[in-house]
Design a binder for these strands. Sequence first.
DNA 1: AAGCTCACCAACCGCGGTTTC
DNA 2: GGAAACCGCGGTTGGTGAGCT
Length: 318
Amino acid sequence: MGRPPCCDKESVKKGPWTPEEDLVLVSYVQEHGPGNWRAVPANTGLLRCSKSCRLRWTNYLRPGIRRGGFSDQEDRLIVHLQALLGNRWAAIASYLPDRTDNDVKNYWNTHLKKKLLAQQQQQLRASPSPPKGQWELKLQTDINLARRALRDALSIDAGPPGMAVAGSAAPAPSAGPAAPQQAYALTARSVDRMMLDGWAAAAPAAGRRSCVVGGTVVIPAPATTPGAAESASRSSSELTTAECSASISSASDQRAAPVADHQLLASEENNYTASAVQQGEVPLSAIESWLLEDAGAGEQKLAHDGPLLDAALHSFGF
DNA sequence: AAGCTCACCAACCGCGGTTTC
DNA sequence: GGAAACCGCGGTTGGTGAGCT
């Protein structure tokens, strides 16, 4: 027996969402919170499939989303993470504050892939014997390093519980040299935004997202803790920028941070102290530090990025 | 000005994992 | 334990606008 369609396709509207539909959806979510998407079309009268409602909310209407205007640092971060994780866009997006997986995926497909390709071709032209097969060469010449890399890779799943370090290795949005293009440029979006601002500040945090403050990953207290409730109960004006962005992100983000992926990238960060965790401060993981340092290295590294394998090699300490 | 091509991105589709009954 | 429902994810498509001829 096959899977039934998620909705009655005949009575379902497709195509771009209208501002009116957005308002209906935002109003509903504002009242009932995100989730139980099946009930959304029935309760709102929207002629949309539940899936479409969820997607619209997740990728577009959810508060705290930034769209477009990817910085160079974000570019490099995406490139490195893609080299490490492959096309696991949700995992990659979890490292980019306020970016959606769909946005990251689209950006990769339309910009970064071509950029990398161009760079590789440029390298090919520049050097008659391109540095192909570096990974294999390393493996052949240094079996110990290879073993270590393999061990590290295989130890991912055995990582300790509670390592849900929702690391945001990218800088705070305000730290960027050029202010990224903000979301809700359209009038309808601005309306949605205005409607949500008040709600998001008061909404209970459903998940945990972190933000980088002064080089330290700050994780808001879990929603179930008194701290979170207290934070959520405060007015938005009382929240710090970090708190605000974190709580806004977490309030509606139904997707838990991909723990396994962060464990993957944090395989060497077991040395952070319990007290630091209790205080909500977790040192940057080795990989995050690498990413940040690397990003700080500027264009020099980017130019070297040619073979994506280099990034993976770098991550394994080659 | 009109037609064409291309790039971009919002949205759809289908699959797999998880939860519920 | 198994079926159904639900949800999340990644791949792909199609509409739209910008740029070019």
